[in-house]
Design a protein around this nucleic acid. Structure first.
Lengths: 337, 337
DNA sequence: TTGAAAGCGCTAACAA
DNA sequence: TTGTTAGCGCTTTCAA
């Protein structure tokens, strides 16, 4: 069986208290005693039991993270950022996947509470659950951080990305290249499309360049088929219209847009410019490489971890909004007649 | 403060043992008593403390998973599989990232032991560490499962994917379409390239169709730049050679190969066929869509979780090798003159 | 500088 | 069917 602190104490002929002091190094121990204990530890391959320690000290050194799914590169990157920041602390990461399901999300959080985590980070919380009583109660119990949630609740820290600003930056980038007739491509069922559409409408109206028919909806926006769907829909649409640029709500759609242009014999960016959103790895794989908006997902994760640590240590919540920035690559530019 | 079992016992006027029995439902409790206790639990918002329970029962209900990094879609998919299988059990998942570093990998495993996990799954263990004494000692302490490791140690369960068979299947797929002169594109520093190269050499030699100059090395094979590097190297190479097909060790390289062909005015697959490896999401985003070999990474993860559970429950190790299968899409076919 | 002992929240024998 | 109690492995107060 695994060696316990008692075994070590016996082996080295001291009390368990002394062993504990050696292990934690928080109280003075005579050099000679320390050596004896350390030898015994090595000999018995003793590893302290964190569960017991935490039960005793009423602390916990794990943080729960709930993600809605793994198939999306977005979450992998946020997770990466969280892990990176947490690594420098003494906390470790308990992971659960909510499968895009509100009930399952609650379940995950409850399980974390049972496991006595120090706090829970929820990435893209389900909008149904996010407004519910459930999270209000949970926030009263333990530190809670939301990543990318539109709705705000008391006692919860938020880290979001400035999609309004990002949409504006994307359009200004296109204006800068002299584009006026700009198609807007979005999908269904996501707050993030709503936000961008609103900005698009406002800005285009301001310029007197708004045409309702320039707004294209390609349906489900985060699947593999999105690329192809977007391509076909645009090939259809663009027959009648003569946009000089296309603003897409994510890189999948942008990729479909580029493909559509190429199939129709329009050069990108000489004939038509395309800008995407998210700066997923994808955007660099294509030829030409996508100009897009970076949401800095790694930073989103790092910030979430930082806010969590802050809540645990100082018991204060904080909200952070990260800027979205243009990454210019090869799909935007001036028109060449 | 959080309510404990003692609080619930007091509130409902029974002993802690009875509360425990109600919570666990493992011993008979009179209906009326049970109701009293349940009410108290609800009233106090009591959540049992798993740490205490596990300390007492000498059990643990978490499994540690170490991945080398997150930036690779591969690991995200394996993780997805592990999580999916574990979800149906009562175990939860402790995650750590080794950052492609052998020392850091050991550290992660040690930390898991301290946290008293039931077992550890290591995805793509570092080859240095994999052969070391470290894992031998660790395997003696607790269940260990390796995903995608070339070297085998006693007391450890393995789940690997049959890359030999996959490479053979890829070549046979090309032979089937009548290709004889086939370029082999690989990268540096990975067992998986070695394995495929060996198969390629063997099979091409057997057919008397082996030309040493057909083996191309594009350097670092798992970065974003791999796509572009591959493209330039191949555009250079293919001037002199006249292959009718290209077998690439991963989808990044295959994407680069397709781009190279297109730039050189060769139609894919009418003039030249390209086959990739991995079946990453990427392979479906391109136009034309990549024919590739599926490693079934989700299954790899699910199997790893299954073997872990088996080791925990029955204390037996098992090795599994998953078949790699051809996924035919749009980049392979007969030559059209 | 060290040891004895209480107790963290829980389960499970044992007794009633 | 229920209660009493020992003890899981550890930390920490208190006393020596």
């Amino acid at each position: 069986m695994k060696a316990t602190i008692v075994d070590v104490a016996k082996e080295s002929g001291v009390s368990v208290a002394t062993v504990s002091r050696v292990v934690n190094g928080n109280y003075p121990v005579r050099e000679k005693t320390r050596l004896k204990v350390e030898n015994a530890i090595k000999k018995l391959e003793y590893v302290p039991n964190l569960q017991a320690r935490e039960l005793n000290t009423q602390r916990s050194s794990s943080i729960g993270v709930v993600v809605p799914s793994f198939d999306n590169m977005f979450f992998a990157q946020v997770l990466d950022g969280i892990e990176e920041r947490l690594r420098r602390s003494s906390y470790s990461l308990l992971l659960a996947c909510a499968q895009n399901d509100a009930a399952r999300e609650e379940e995950c959080v409850r399980d974390f509470i049972t496991r006595n985590v120090s706090g829970v980070i929820v990435v893209s919380p389900n909008t149904e659950t996010a407004v519910s009583e459930f999270y209000e109660n949970t926030a009263a119990r333990l530190p809670l951080v939301f990543v990318n949630s539109a709705r705000e609740l008391a006692g919860i820290s938020y880290v979001t990305s400035d999609q309004r600003g990002g949409a504006r930056a994307a359009l200004e980038h296109l204006f800068h290249y002299g584009h006026e007739r700009i198609l807007f491509v979005q999908g269904e069922n996501s707050d993030s499309y709503r936000i961008k559409e609103k900005v698009y409408r406002e800005i285009m109206r301001e310029r007197g360049a708004f045409h309702p028919e320039d707004i294209v909806n390609v349906g489900e926006g985060n699947r593999i088929e999105t690329v192809e769907n977007t391509m076909f829909i645009l090939m259809d649409m663009m027959q009648g219209l003569a946009p000089t640029a296309i603003f897409c709500c994510n890189d999948l759609m942008a990729m479909g847009a580029v493909n559509a242009c190429q199939r129709m014999g329009r050069r990108v960016p000489q004939d038509i410019s395309v800008i995407g959103y998210d700066n997923t790895a994808l955007s660099q794989y294509t030829a030409p490489k996508l100009t897009t908006i970076d949401q800095h997902m790694g930073d989103l994760g790092r910030e979430a971890a930082r806010l969590m640590l802050k809540q645990i240590e100082e018991n204060v919540t904080e909200n952070v909004m990260l800027a979205n920035t243009v990454v210019e690559r090869e799909t935007t530019g001036f028109r060449m007649e």
